[in-house]
């Protein structure tokens, strides 16, 4: 068995050696209005900030308010903010009413089975992934604390510069 393992690892290393490494994950989820949204389509606009949240998560909603303000400030520069709801069946019916009540206009997607959340290694919300316009993970964030808006704004400015022609 050892031989099979060693052979497999060597074969794998050989196959991937010398090839260009780039981002390799796309998703297609439904938004709160029933439209299908593909990550690769969003990336055509610019760097994409994916915030995983839930209606019962207090720091998620604090972070969302800050991200909404930053999105308003930088969306014309190409910054894309997407909130992915990880609410399961018990609270999913409250997602749209909450978003509409706050008059938020950014894209909100349903990740009910948490497949995208877990593919990015999310453990508990708030959890965020910031992708540059090439689709590479520029940064990931766990948790949120007061004052993080300054750091987020600086990251947005940095991400907007990556891959810009």
């Amino acid at each position: 068995m050892k031989k099979i393992i060693i052979l497999s690892v060597l074969l794998f290393a050989f196959m991937i050696s010398g090839t260009g490494f780039s981002q390799g994950y796309d998703f297609n989820l439904e938004d709160i209005d029933g439209n299908s949204v593909k990550l690769s389509e969003l990336l055509k606009k610019g760097p994409v900030f994916l915030q995983f949240w839930a209606t019962w998560c207090v720091p998620c909603k604090e972070e969302m308010k800050v991200l909404n303000e930053l999105w308003g400030k930088y969306k014309d520069s190409g910054f894309v903010f997407v909130a992915l709801s990880t609410d399961d069946q018990k609270s999913i019916s409250k997602v749209k009413p909450y978003i509409e009540s706050k008059s938020y206009k950014f894209t909100v997607l349903y990740d009910t089975d948490k497949s995208v959340f877990s593919n990015y290694g999310g453990q508990d919300p708030p959890f965020s992934i910031f992708l540059d316009r090439n689709g590479n993970v520029f940064k990931s964030y766990s948790g949120y604390m007061a004052g993080d808006d300054a750091k987020l704004e600086s990251d947005i400015n940095e991400a907007l510069k990556i891959g810009k022609n």
Binding site: S8, L11, F12, F14, I16, T19, S22, Y120, G121, Q123
Partner: peptide, 27 residues
Amino acid sequence: KLAAVILFFVSGFIYSQPKLNIKVSAS
């Protein structure tokens, strides 16, 4: 054993791909 078998087949598939997109995520 299972991981080795998966790796073996994935490797074969990778070799036949014109361009590789590889990403590793860990937590």
